[in-house]
């Protein structure tokens, strides 16, 4: 199958790895997320006051853990209340303007979920969706950061490109579907294109914003230290823009999921969006909810993976707090 072959040679397959990790571990991801950061800082040569702070940080870790425990308990309890409410509304056949009569109850959804994950087709849907995300997102990252950097630095580029962005940005993914199908040779390409567009604008705008926010005094300092334009760009503008770029990347990942799903619902034969819509056509209501929840988890997981991947570049910012 072409889809599976392509996943392996994906351009930015680095993204695939952490996202799977993040999804697999669920709640524990926060604890895991901290590890790489702390491991790196101890890599740093000459952290002189490490031993003195160990005892303190140990106590602190205990305290944090108990606070963490409480917060996570609250979160899980909040979710449980939601599920219970859902259970009640569906079993009581609540029909008060909103109709719960046809909404599957949580247990049925769970059973459907178990049935799906013991088969193979469900995984193909997920893999196809993820492949589209990765390709579309990779292009959006490369083009978005590139354009954002240029637009942030050059007034001319900004004047040329900004009108397009202003007009195209508000157009939702769904509105692109007819034209995308007409424009692109394959349905697959049109879905990826829509995914790409979704991620593109947040990345461009955040990158541009980050570049424009570079403090002038830092550029002046670099100039007086002998830096040329390219060096200023590499050592000052780019790092100054990184926090903003990282935000753009995370937002872009979320939006690319919205867009993907829109594309998959209307067309395509595989993908988690197609799965969800198909379940509706087949009057298989529990699977609708399975698909929806799966989309939610994938979206959250991949956004988290992006945050995790950008975190090492923002180490200096954590120190500022």
């Amino acid at each position: 199958m072409a889809a599976q072959g392509a996943i392996i040679e994906m351009p930015k397959s680095g993204n695939l790895d952490p996202s799977q990790e993040a999804r697999g571990d669920g709640e524990e991801t926060t604890a895991q997320g901290l590890q790489p950061a702390s491991a790196e800082s101890s890599d740093h040569p000459g952290n002189t006051d490490q031993p003195a702070e160990t005892a303190k940080s140990f106590q602190l870790a205990n305290l944090l853990q108990s606070e963490h425990l409480v917060r996570w308990s609250i979160r899980i309890a909040a979710l449980a209340v939601g599920v219970l409410a859902w259970h009640w509304a569906t079993t009581a056949n609540l029909n008060f303007y909103i109709n719960f009569e046809n909404v599957p109850e949580p247990l049925k959804v769970w059973n459907a979920f178990v049935a799906q994950i013991s088969g193979t087709e469900f995984y193909i849907h997920i893999l196809v969706s993820m492949q589209r995300i990765i390709i579309g997102y990779a292009f959006a990252v490369a083009i978005g950061i590139g354009l954002g950097l240029i637009m942030g630095r050059s007034k001319l580029a900004n004047d040329i490109l900004m009108p397009y962005i202003e007009i195209l940005r508000p157009i939702p993914a769904v509105a692109w579907i007819p034209l995308a199908i007409l424009m692109w040779p394959t349905e697959e390409a049109s879905i990826i294109y829509i995914t790409f567009l979704g991620a593109l604008f947040p990345i461009i705008l955040n990158t541009m914003h980050g570049v424009e926010q570079t403090p002038e005094v830092l550029i002046r300092a670099a100039r007086s230290l002998g830096a040329r334009q390219t060096q200023i760009f590499r050592h000052v503008v780019l790092p100054a823009a990184l926090p903003s770029i990282a935000t753009g990347l995370a937002v872009g990942m979320g939006v690319s999921w919205f867009s993907l799903l829109a594309g998959e619902i209307i067309s395509g034969q595989y993908g988690i969006g197609y799965f969800t819509w198909n379940a509706y056509s087949l009057i298989n209501y529990p699977d609708i909810v399975v698909g929806m929840l799966c989309i939610g988890l994938l979206g959250t997981g991949s956004t988290y993976a992006v945050r995790l991947a950008t975190r090492p570049f923002l180490k200096w910012q954590e120190k500022a707090r």
């Binding site: 005094v217 002046r220 300092a221 670099a222 230290l225 002998g226 060096q231 200096w316």
Partner: peptide, 29 residues
């Protein structure tokens, strides 16, 4: 140019560089 060292009123260190990396910036560049 690097023949004139400049110290600013506002804090003008590169926040993403350590103290050592900041001071080494000129010679490195």
């Amino acid at each position: 140019g690097p023949d004139r060292g400049m110290v600013f009123q506002q804090y003008s260190l590169f926040p993403w560089k350590t103290v050592k990396e900041n001071v080494a910036f000129g010679p490195n560049i």
